[in-house]
C-alpha cells in the first residue's frame, strides 16, 4: 500500500495550505475593519493598483471589444443577425470580459509586485522589524492593500467596460460599416444596470483575491531570492485560477435563474 502514501501526503499538504490560507484571510479581513487604519498607505496603494494599471486595463479593454465585434460579425453574418453585435459586445464586456480580463491583467501586474515586495520584506527581516516596533504587520502591510484592491478594482473595470464598448464601436462603425447612432442606440437599449453591477461586484471580489494572494504568498515566502521568486509565481497563478473559479460561482449566483 506504499503507493497510497504519496497521495495521502499530497492531500494533507493541500489541506494544510488551505487551512493556512483561511487563517491568514480571516486575520487579514479582521484587520481591515479594526483600527488603527493607515490612510496614507491605502491612498498610495490605490494609486499603485488603480492609477498605474489604467494603461494595461485600457489596452486590454479596447482590443477585447474590437476582437469581439469582429468575431461576432463573422459568426452572426451566417444567420443574417449582424444587428445583434452591439448587444453581444456590451453584454460580454460588462458581464464577463471586462472584470475577468482586467482581473487577470492586474493579477499579473499587482499580484506579482505585492508578493515580491512583501516577500523581500520577509527575507530581509523587515517584517520582524515591524513587530519589534510595536506595529502589527497584518494591519500595516496586508489590510491597506486589501482595502485598496477592494476599492480600486471596480473603477478599473468600469474603465475597461467603457473602453471595451468603444473598441467594439470603432470596429463596427469604421470597419464593418455600421451606422454610428444606431450602434450606440442598440448598445444603450440593451444595457441593463444589472449587467454593469454584476461586473462591478465581480471586480470587487477579484480585487480582494489579487491583493490577498499577493500578500499571502509574499508574507509566507522563505529562503532568499529563490523563495521570493516562487512566491511571485504562486501569487499570480493562484490569483488567476481563483479569479476564473470565482467568476463562475458569481455568474451562477447572479444569473442562474435567467
Amino acid at each position: 500500500m506504499n503507493f497510497l502514501q504519496p497521495i495521502g501526503s499530497v492531500i494533507l499538504h493541500f489541506l494544510e495550505t488551505v487551512g493556512r490560507l483561511i487563517r491568514f484571510s480571516v486575520s487579514a479581513f479582521s484587520h481591515t475593519v479594526r483600527p488603527p487604519f493607515y490612510p496614507r498607505i491605502i491612498i498610495r496603494q490605490m494609486v499603485d493598483i488603480g492609477f498605474y494599471s489604467l494603461p494595461v486595463v485600457g489596452l486590454t479593454g479596447v482590443f477585447a471589444g474590437m476582437v469581439l465585434a469582429l468575431q461576432s460579425y463573422t459568426g452572426f453574418a451566417r444567420f443574417s443577425a449582424e444587428g445583434a453585435i452591439a448587444n453581444v459586445v456590451v453584454l460580454s464586456i460588462t458581464r464577463e470580459l471586462g472584470p475577468v480580463l482586467a482581473g487577470l491583467m492586474v493579477a499579473g501586474r499587482i499580484g506579482a509586485s505585492l508578493a515580491a515586495e512583501i516577500g523581500t520584506m520577509r527575507v530581509t527581516e523587515q517584517i520582524d522589524a515591524l513587530t519589534t516596533l510595536s506595529t502589527n504587520p497584518m494591519k500595516f502591510l496586508v489590510a491597506p492593500r486589501i482595502i485598496a484592491g477592494l476599492i480600486t478594482f471596480p473603477f478599473l473595470v468600469l474603465v475597461a467596460d467603457v473602453i471595451g464598448v468603444f473598441g467594439g464601436y470603432i470596429v463596427a462603425v469604421y470597419k464593418l460599416g455600421f451606422n454610428p447612432s444606431n450602434y450606440l442606440q442598440n448598445t444603450w437599449d440593451f444595457l441593463q444596470a444589472e449587467d454593469v453591477n454584476s461586473g462591478l461586484v465581480k471586480a470587487a471580489v477579484f480585487g480582494v483575491i489579487v491583493t490577498l494572494m499577493g500578500c499571502y504568498h509574499g508574507y509566507n515566502s522563505r529562503g532568499g531570492a529563490q523563495g521570493v521568486g516562487m512566491a511571485t509565481t504562486n501569487a499570480v497563478v493562484s490569483a488567476s485560477i481563483m479569479i476564473l473559479c470565482f467568476d463562475y460561482i458569481l455568474t451562477e449566483m447572479f444569473f442562474a435563474g435567467i
Partner: peptide
C-alpha cells in the same frame, strides 16, 4: 516589545 529596541543583522530598514 515597547520596551525593546532591536538592531537587525542586515539593518532591516524599510
Amino acid at each position: 516589545n515597547s520596551k525593546f529596541g532591536m538592531l537587525f543583522q542586515g539593518a532591516a530598514l524599510f
